[in-house]
Structures are given as structure tokens and as C-alpha cells.
């Protein structure tokens, strides 16, 4: 199909991201402030609920919580928004030829900008809780990029599935809830029985969040093993997502 090369559509991508961003914030009084408030409020609630349980184990618990919340909700937003991207753009897809990937990609980029904004309250929480600021923090973009690749891959997969089966979103809402609890966001992995820990470590989000925590909380560059796991967690789902999406995109238009 002609006009399918996504790299020629940078301008379209820019416009779509701008549009997503505008519509996300235009209707609300606080606007962009929600990007700061959302993770902070979630963190406050979880802190109130869980600090009694785990405070003793984890130093800088608010920052520990916030890193997990920010990364997980970024991934969740990418998938939830990206999943609906093709179906929601159905009327347009039936009229104008465009590389299909611009729709989920533009939504994931919008979420990535949101992630960038939520680093500001993270910085605030670090200062308030006395977490030392170290040169390791310069590696945060790497953590963000790796998570982005993973989330984009998931987004492309779920988006494809959603075109063919519209009940995917209901499955996802259940799956993402389960996933939230299966990921050590508000608890340390040490509370999991030792026999089960290897299984929990296979969770890509656990690997990515731990990568981020090593940078933010310990002020260290993640180990080679961590880098390897995270590169794998980013590359494999992305490759699979791109493959499935490209394989099926010509048929999307018949299911919209």
C-alpha cells in the first residue's frame, strides 16, 4: 500500500500528539496540573494505607511508592489509550490512507510526555524525604525509554486484538488490575514466598520499576544483569507488537 511509510508522517504525528494533549487538558480547570496531582494523590492514598504495613522495611517509602506508581500508570495509560486508538479513529481510517501505526504511537507519545511531567512531583518527593540526588539520576531517560518500548509493544498488540475482538478492553481492565497487584509497587518483593519470587521477577514491569528504583533510591547505575533483563523486556514485546501489527494492519479497515 502506498503512503505507508511512517517516517514521512512526522508532522502528522506532531499534530496528533498536540491534539491528544489539548483534548486531555482543555476541559479541566486545573489542566496540566493533573499530571502532577494524579501520581501524588495516588501515592498519598497508598502511603496512608500501606505505610503501616511496610514502612519498616523500605526507606524513603513515598519515593519508593511514587517510582512504582509513575512507571506502572504510564504503561497502563499507553495500553489503555493505545488499545482504543484504531477503533476510535475508524471513521477517519475508512476515508484517508495513512500508516495505521500513527494512531497508537501518537497516544503513547502523549503518555510519555505525561511521564516526563510526573518526574517533577517525583523530584519534589525526593527533596522532601531527603533522598540524595546523585549523578545516577541522569539515567532516568533510559528507564523511561525502556518502559516506553515495552508499553508501545503492549499497546500495538492490544490495539490489534481490540480491532478484531471488541471485548479486549474488558479483559484488559481485569488483567491490568491483577497486574497492578502482582507487581511490587507498594510492597517489597521480599514479602513474596521465596519459592514464588522467580516467577514475580519474570514480570517485565517488576524489572523496569526495579531498574528505576536502583537509579532513584540507591543512586546507582543498574547492574549488567538488570540492563540485560530490561533490554529484553523492552525489545521482545516491541518486536512482537510491531510484527503482529504490520501483519494485520491491512485488514483493520474491514473490521471498523
Amino acid at each position: 500500500m502506498h503512503k505507508k511509510n511512517i517516517f514521512r508522517y512526522g508532522f502528522l504525528l506532531e499534530q496528533l500528539v498536540k491534539r491528544n494533549f489539548n483534548t486531555k487538558y482543555r476541559q479541566s480547570v486545573l489542566g496540566i496540573l493533573w499530571s502532577f496531582l494524579n501520581p501524588l494523590l495516588t501515592m498519598a492514598v497508598q502511603y496512608l494505607v500501606f505505610s503501616a504495613l511496610f514502612r519498616s522495611d523500605i526507606s524513603h517509602f513515598p519515593v519508593y511508592l511514587l517510582t512504582g506508581i509513575i512507571l506502572f500508570s504510564f504503561m497502563n495509560e499507553c495500553v489503555t489509550l493505545g488499545m482504543d486508538a484504531i477503533v476510535a479513529s475508524g471513521p477517519l481510517i475508512k476515508k484517508v490512507a495513512m500508516p495505521m501505526a500513527v494512531y497508537p504511537l501518537s497516544r503513547c507519545i502523549t503518555a510519555l510526555i505525561g511521564l516526563g511531567l510526573s518526574l517533577i512531583p517525583l523530584g519534589g518527593a525526593m527533596l522532601l524525604s531527603g533522598t540524595p540526588l546523585t549523578p545516577a539520576l541522569l539515567l532516568i531517560p533510559a528507564a523511561a525509554l525502556l518502559t516506553f518500548c515495552f508499553a508501545l509493544g503492549m499497546s500495538l498488540l492490544m490495539c490489534t486484538l481490540n480491532v478484531f475482538f471488541r471485548d479486549t478492553r474488558f479483559l484488559w481492565s481485569v488483567a491490568s488490575l491483577l497486574w497492578t497487584y502482582a507487581t511490587p509497587i507498594f510492597y517489597p518483593i521480599t514479602i513474596i514466598p521465596a519459592a514464588w519470587q522467580p516467577v514475580f521477577r519474570l514480570n517485565p514491569m517488576y524489572q523496569l520499576i526495579t531498574f528505576m528504583r536502583t537509579i532513584v533510591l540507591e543512586g546507582l547505575c543498574p547492574s549488567a544483569g538488570q540492563w540485560g533483563m530490561c533490554l529484553l523486556a523492552a525489545a521482545l514485546p516491541l518486536a512482537l507488537g510491531v510484527f503482529v501489527f504490520r501483519k494485520t494492519q491491512d485488514r483493520f479497515v474491514f473490521h471498523l
Binding site: 508522517y9 508532522f11 502528522l12 496528533l16 498536540k18 477517519l92 484517508v96 495513512m98
Partner: peptide, 8 residues
């Protein structure tokens, strides 16, 4: 801008 970008 948006519609122009969509038209390519």
C-alpha cells in the same frame, strides 16, 4: 494544521 497533516 491537523486536517492538513491528515491529508499528507
Amino acid at each position: 494544521l491537523l486536517n492538513g497533516a491528515i491529508l499528507g
